[in-house]
Amino acid sequence: MWLVELVDVAVPADLDLNGIIPRSASGLDGIIWMPFLHGGWAHLISNSLPFLVLGFLVFAGGLGQWIAVTATIWLVGGIGVWLTGAPGTVHVGASGIVFGWMLFLLVRGLFNRSARQLLVAVALLAYWGTMLFGVLPGTPGISWQGHLFGALGGVLAAWLVAVANRSEPVRS
């Protein structure tokens, strides 16, 4: 993300125009690019710390789980933005992934019935809980759709991981 922003600034390539363009066939590939593109350094910096921390916490479940969770969030978030975003807008940023990871970490303990995971959720809620207001419309220029559908992707991913974990055979 940092390298892409550096190239975008150094080359003046207007890479941000490659984000999701709602309900436009040419904007569908933005689903792939959205998390890598940011509307400037401040936008990138605001996503970086939660991206690293929450991504690390999700990665603690293993590489395979991290890939599956991230892919689910990425697709649900991107398709949701593409379907519901305002016409004529371009959506960029990794905050959909961040919101997805946050919700994954908040609800996975419920689906897995894990006290340890619930304790992690309480700590995250205490520290970053106010970020959840970002799923609500209201701030111009902020893709609340990206936040909302990323979060919904995180809930779906938590449920899918719990179902997969229950179907694994127990080894003795």
Score class of each variant (00 low, 15 high):
R171D: 08
F51W: 15
A68E: 04
A115L: 14
W2R: 12
L37K: 03
Y127N: 13
F36Q: 08
L63R: 03
H38G: 01
V122L: 15
V81S: 02
I32E: 10
A157N: 07
S143H: 06
G62C: 05
W101I: 02
L37V: 01
F99P: 00
G40Q: 03
L57T: 06
F36A: 06
G129E: 09
L152S: 04
V170S: 09
V9W: 07
F104P: 02
N18E: 10
N18A: 11
V98I: 14
L160E: 00
G134F: 06
A126H: 12
A162Y: 01
V69Q: 00
S46C: 10
G153P: 02
N165A: 14
S46Y: 06
G134T: 13
G80Y: 02
I31P: 00
S26W: 15
R23F: 09
G55Q: 07
S46R: 08
V122C: 15
W128V: 14
D16N: 14
L6H: 09
V135P: 06
T70M: 03
L118W: 09
V98D: 04
N112S: 13
N47K: 08
N47E: 13
V163F: 13
A10M: 14
S95H: 04
L49C: 12
V76A: 01
V7W: 00
T72R: 05
P87Q: 12
G129A: 12
L28Y: 11
L52Q: 12
G78A: 06
D16Q: 15
L52G: 14
S48C: 11
F56M: 11
N112Y: 03
L125N: 05
S167K: 15
V161Q: 03
Q145K: 06
P169N: 11
H38R: 09
V163G: 10
R108N: 00
T84F: 10
G93R: 00
L6R: 11
L152N: 05
E5C: 05
V98N: 06
G100C: 06
G150H: 02
G93I: 04
D29K: 15
P35C: 08
H43I: 08
G138K: 11
L63A: 05
W101D: 05
A42G: 13
N18I: 07
W82I: 07
G64V: 04
F59Q: 02
G61H: 07
G153E: 06
V170L: 10
A10L: 14
T89M: 05
H147V: 05
F133H: 15
V98R: 02
L37P: 01
I31T: 10
I32G: 10
W33A: 09
W128K: 13
H91T: 05
V58F: 04
V170A: 09
T139P: 09
P137V: 01
A158V: 04
G134H: 08
A68P: 01
L44Q: 05
F104E: 03
H38C: 04
G27S: 09
A162Q: 07
I79A: 07
L57N: 04
I20H: 03
S95I: 03
V90Q: 04
I20G: 02
G146W: 01
N165G: 11
